[in-house]
Amino acid sequence: MKRIAFIGGNPNAQSFNSSTEAEFSRAGNNTGNYAFWNAVDRQILGSKEYFEGWGFSPEYLRDFFDVVVLPSSNFIHPDRDMGVLANKLEKTGLPVISIGLGAQAPKENENVVFKPGTIRFAKVLSELSEKIVVRGEHTASVLDSFGVRNVEVLGCPSNFTNLNPKLGVENEVKMQNLLDFDDSEFSVLVNIDAHRRKFSSSYRKFFEMFKKGSFEIVCQNPIELVSMARGDVWPGDNSHILHQASLWCPGEDLSVLRKFVKKHFVTFFNAAAWMEYARKFDISVGTRLHGNMLAFQAGVPSSFVSHDSRTSELVSVMKLPTCSWESLEMESIRDVVSMTNFDGGLYDVNRKFLAKKYVDVLNSYGVTVCGDLLDFAGNG
């Protein structure tokens, strides 16, 4: 097996006895990163060392490893400069397996300007990679504009977490059964960008829907919410906290918000624990793709609300269940269920097709692919 430098947090690390600040930093300031770190860690076998952040020594990687595995997020972002990572990867001289790379824009096909360091990062990846595994056609188009064309559009590796070949069909049946529920009967796992102020009015209306039954809100960031969800004490004069108070408990003092968060917010620094917890809910709904994906992979019917290029291209490539942003304006969770577009059979067939292409990419690097994924893709 190859010696692997894994650029990302160790998805098997324990967090219960560590501070929120340390764990949030380890999570790359977004706990949703554990969804794809966990997937890639299980899919590619070898002798691994985990490098949290970009503080690694290129010389150390060059001398002690055979390949760099880079589980990627929306690195191609107009507000990011990826030049530092580009320089470090180039200095290693090692092949890089970049998986799940995404380009960020408010809408697909919307022209945005990227920083020179980010464009250079894409070109360095191209030079060091057999193929760059990207999230969707939008990302492929952006990279093409940089002159980078050795890409494979495969969505997110978290799509191959639960390799039940009938996962889509089974989740579709469960979703259809929810049409017999009324709103007071639903147990909803809510995955939303609760800190994003531009969504506040829609979230308030959404809240009116899911509060009729039981619900919990998965908190991925910012640190203020993650801290309160873990039971930490946080000062109340922070802008994030004040925004949450106006969103969930308008007109109330901060003590009401703290009780609300303690009762309804939950956070995770481990994908397996996240999935296990998600199993008890009837449905997962929201704008957070990785939160919904982990629930979906746990066998929970989910509705992915697309609102930007990042989520839209992933939902499209993987054939995930989706409802429009306007669904947040509906009056009931049952309405969301009825308006969610999903073909479970198509999802299952498409996922097997994507898995075959994914395994072909991994095999081109000579790494050891886990047996379950090989079998699922038909390569076992």
Rank of each mutant, 00 (worst) to 15 (best):
E152Y: 03
V134P: 10
L143W: 05
I99P: 04
S98A: 15
V112G: 06
I76K: 12
L101E: 06
E130I: 05
S126F: 05
E110I: 13
P78I: 12
V133N: 03
L143C: 02
G155A: 09
K115L: 13
S98L: 01
L85M: 15
A105P: 00
N87T: 07
E90H: 11
G102K: 11
N159V: 05
V84N: 15
F121G: 02
V124G: 08
K115V: 04
A103H: 06
R80F: 15
M82G: 07
L101Y: 11
T118I: 11
G147K: 09
S129V: 12
E90I: 02
A86E: 01
E110R: 10
G83S: 12
L94N: 08
T139V: 00
H138R: 03
V153L: 14
E152Q: 15
G100Y: 09
I76F: 08
A140F: 02
G102L: 05
F121K: 11
V151K: 14
T139K: 13
G147D: 02
G83N: 03
L94A: 10
N111M: 14
I76M: 08
F121H: 01
N150R: 03
P157W: 02
I76R: 15
E90G: 11
T92W: 10
R120M: 13
G155L: 07
R135C: 02
F146L: 10
R135T: 01
H138P: 00
V124S: 06
V96W: 15
G100L: 09
K107G: 04
V151G: 05
C156Q: 00
L89Q: 14
